[in-house]
Amino acid sequence: MFNAHPMVTRLAFVASDRPEAIEARGRLARRYGDTPETEAQVVVALGGDGFMLETLHRLMESGKPIYGMNRGSVGFLMNEYSEDDLLERINAAERALIHPLRMTAVDARGVMHKALAINEVSLLRQTRQTAKLRISVDGKVRLAELSCDGALVATPAGSTAYNLSAHGPIIPLDARVLALTPISAFRPRRWRGALLSHTARVTFEVMEADKRPVSAVADNFEVRDVTEVHVAEDRDVGMTMLFDAGRSLEERVLAEQFSA
């Protein structure tokens, strides 16, 4: 529980570019004060899930907890918006520690690109041509050829995002596993993906890369014309998200599995 930590009194407010988020930031800052991020104990992010991911990436090195309130279109990672009793809610909030995926992608020129992903690393075909991927786990080839629109590796926190849309499994936050999920698999048609240990190292090799170009995306960071992509969880990096008591991220992920 977050209330086991020092009492929070200093908040920094950040907002997306949506008018309702900007207006909310102004009202909350006037009511609770607006401490500079470097001095704040908690950063309050106002927007949708996309803005929460942006904020997590931007403050990744700071170690500051982030409490989101929904002023956007999608709010799975956000708390309900209310201007009342904000300090009390934050001091009673539950913590979720998130570890990202580290993507290392090599493009057709041999240039190496590195990025972190909180939700997922996805490989996507760039043209009408089906992508062909060879997939290895911990150095052993597990799927010699996957013809598909793409494939992704998702964290538990990201398992309810793109992974779920691609018919991948929802993963409890404490399961210590990753989801490897195909996107519109053509061959082998019946392969539905795999659950991997969180320590697994996944390698995608792009076959016929000149004819069938593929991009790699780590959350919102994209690399075009990749030939090889390596994905592994980075346990050395951790981000803390705060959720209202009784509405923890673990509870939301569990409830999603029973939603109609």
Rank of each mutant, 00 (worst) to 15 (best):
E83Q: 07
F258S: 12
D210T: 01
D210Q: 09
F221Q: 01
R247Y: 12
R58W: 00
A29L: 02
A157E: 04
T181A: 02
T227D: 12
S62L: 09
M207L: 15
E145A: 11
L133C: 12
N91D: 04
D174Y: 13
V253A: 10
D34I: 00
E54L: 00
R125P: 00
E250W: 11
I98A: 12
L28H: 03
A161I: 02
H167C: 11
G246Q: 02
M78L: 15
N3A: 14
E120W: 00
R128C: 11
H167E: 10
A144R: 00
V141R: 08
Q257L: 08
E20F: 09
P19T: 12
D138F: 15
E88I: 14
E222R: 09
P65I: 09
T203V: 13
G139R: 15
I171Q: 07
E39I: 00
V229K: 14
L97V: 13
Q129S: 14
L195N: 13
D49P: 08
V14Y: 03
M112W: 04
A260C: 07
V8E: 06
I98G: 06
G110H: 09
L152R: 06
R190V: 08
F221Y: 11
K140Q: 07
S215A: 12
V121E: 01
G26K: 14
A175S: 08
V206H: 10
L28K: 04
A166D: 08
E20V: 09
P156R: 05
Q257N: 06
L133R: 13
V14L: 14
N91Q: 02
P6Q: 13
T38Y: 09
C148A: 15
V137W: 01
P36F: 02
E208N: 12
F204G: 07
A200L: 07
D244A: 08
S82R: 07
P156T: 05
E222L: 07
A218W: 03
L86F: 03
P100G: 13
A40Q: 02
L152Q: 05
C148E: 04
Q129N: 15
L123N: 08
T38K: 15
R71Y: 14
S82D: 13
A200R: 06
R212L: 12
S159Y: 12
I171H: 02
D107H: 01
F221G: 00
G75I: 03
A216I: 06
R58I: 03
N91E: 06
Y162Q: 05
R109A: 15
E251R: 11
R109P: 00
A108P: 07
V141D: 06
P100V: 12
D107R: 04
W191Q: 10
N119R: 03
H198G: 13
S16F: 11
A151C: 13
S165P: 03
M112E: 15
M112P: 05
S136A: 15
N163S: 13
I135Q: 10
S147H: 15
D84W: 12
D17P: 01
M103Y: 11
E37D: 10
K140C: 01
R187K: 03
A12M: 03
R58K: 15
H113M: 04
T160A: 13
F204H: 11
T9F: 00
M7G: 04
R30W: 09
E39P: 01
L77V: 14
L124D: 04
F221S: 08
A179W: 05
